[in-house]
Design a protein around this nucleic acid. Sequence first.
DNA 1: AAAAAAGATTAGACTAGTCTAAAAAACGGG
DNA 2: CCCGTTTTTTAGACTAGTCTAATCTTTTTT
Lengths: 218, 218
Amino acid sequence: MLTRSEEDHIKAVYALLQEDDSAFTKDIAERLHTKASSVSDMLKKLADKGHLKHEPYYGVKLTAKGHALALQLVRKHRLWETFLVERLGFGWDEVHEVAEQMEHVASEKLIDKLDNYLGHPSFDPHGDPIPDRHGRIRARRTKRLSACQQGDTVRIAAVSGTTDGLLRLLDAKGLRIGTVLNVQEVHAFDGSMDVKPKSGSAFSLSKDVSHHLQVENA
Amino acid sequence: MLTRSEEDHIKAVYALLQEDDSAFTKDIAERLHTKASSVSDMLKKLADKGHLKHEPYYGVKLTAKGHALALQLVRKHRLWETFLVERLGFGWDEVHEVAEQMEHVASEKLIDKLDNYLGHPSFDPHGDPIPDRHGRIRARRTKRLSACQQGDTVRIAAVSGTTDGLLRLLDAKGLRIGTVLNVQEVHAFDGSMDVKPKSGSAFSLSKDVSHHLQVENA
DNA sequence: AAAAAAGATTAGACTAGTCTAAAAAACGGG
DNA sequence: CCCGTTTTTTAGACTAGTCTAATCTTTTTT
Ligand SMILES: [Mn+2]
Ligand SMILES: [Mn+2]
Ligand SMILES: [Mn+2]
Ligand SMILES: [Mn+2]
């Protein structure tokens, strides 16, 4: 059995590998609010246990074993988030920290029953896909809103890097998963973007925000 | 914030104080599957933190602070057990270990929302009372079935010391919380007892079993 | 290509939790 | 009331996780 800290490290590596093809000590430390030296130690231990390959100074990759484990953790995290929002009535900006704890409860049966209870959801409250019990993820082709052109009409599929502040900003602007937007204008100066929801008037989004919105063609 | 181990120790002390007016090192160790020396250390720490009074060699008592904390932990444990049985469909013999982990998830909001979601239950799946958010417990006067006389008609209110084996035995005999029994005969030789449920034929219960059944007059 | 900066690892220390073995205290039956 | 048994505490050791400071390694800049 892995400890909470070990699990969090594997999950951090997995998340970083989603973006890049190698994960680095500094970024893992930042994600876990810890220090690079602590991560170094942990990487050695997890490499010994066969969850990842650590090429010192050149980053980390997950083994098949580590990858499967990461998917189970992501599954647990996202199922709990879904439960918290859909059943208990939490806001989507309030669930991350709690799910960060609940994902470490060890019980295969628990997570399967939870999955069943929730009706086998495919996406969590932030639009992120929930791996099934075999680790399979529903494929989607999304792009960042910041990569869209004037005239594009897109649907918000997911919010990446879900910090509370960003989620509350989206709430305030009435943006949620599924909202359809038309890109009216992109300002070269600051990368900000004017968008118009299907119903309602247009408004502006900073590049900071549009960068974190994953969209699909509507 | 307390660690999982600290919380488990406080809960163990609380449980033992329900039976006796002082809790002892050895019994705490046994309950937590740990050693007396480890408990000694922990008691010192918890005494320093003001959760309990430790009179070396003469046992432990909880302070008001420790008592309040224990009640919150018991509340969390029993609410999670209720969730697991009533919502996720676990058997009452399968939930203890899982709840033992979930009770340590730290979030006031979570437990209040869970309580609300479950409809503010007063008793857990084993018939044990669930403290409300202020630590208040619904009072009941129960006695052990083993203390009953021939002719008594009683209702099963709770199963104490809920080990998996006992719960499965009760399942097998069709006994559950709320079952009404008539005591037909008590055998002096081994303390076994013949009981007859309202509907169905009589059968025998060992003293070991009747000792763990809390009943109230029906 | 050398110097500077950034990033990573190692060394050494500290806390928390646990254990075994040994010493100390309390208890209980003659 | 004494002696052996039980219980508890203490002493010392070990693992896990974390940190700071020092020492590499790699990358970037001049
Ligand atoms: Mn976590
Ligand atoms: Mn999420
Ligand atoms: Mn516990
Ligand atoms: Mn219970």
